[in-house]
């Protein structure tokens, strides 16, 4: 290490500044709201399949939509993808999505409907 000095894994000491405290409070609020939302979305998904009142034709796309929302919340809120310095992970993930969507979509069309 030598000239690089401090150990990055050493525990922090002292009180956070006013600004940091406010940031932490806001952060906590977003986390809690997202957490509640996640539980709500999961139970919606569960109910839409478990109850006989909702037709399968609707339930399938509905839970897929919920899943997409959950993935995005998961990545951006819980895994902090929206914070600065995450440009590359964002770019790579969205490139992957950009490649995967047309691939999977056309694959489903090609396999599902025999002649086009």
């Amino acid at each position: 290490m030598g000239q690089h000095g401090m150990d990055p894994s050493a525990p922090l000491t002292g009180k956070p500044s006013k600004k940091t405290q406010r940031k932490l409070r806001n952060e906590m609020r977003t986390q809690l709201i997202s957490f509640v939302l996640m539980i709500f979305l999961t139970s919606m998904a569960f109910i839409s399949i478990a109850s006989d009142a909702i037709p399968t034709g609707f339930a399938m796309p509905f839970i897929l939509l919920l899943a997409v929302i959950q993935v995005i919340l998961q990545l951006y809120v819980f895994m902090h993808l929206n914070e600065r310095g995450n440009g590359w992970p964002n770019a790579m993930i969205w490139t992957g999505v950009l490649v995967a969507i047309p691939t999977v979509a056309s694959l489903m069309l090609l396999l599902g409907i025999v002649k086009w």
């Binding site: 056309s106 069309l109 025999v114 002649k115 086009w116």
Partner: peptide, 10 residues
């Protein structure tokens, strides 16, 4: 896979 029979549009 052109000759597999995917059809003319594909």
């Amino acid at each position: 896979m052109f000759t597999v029979g995917m059809g003319p549009v594909a």
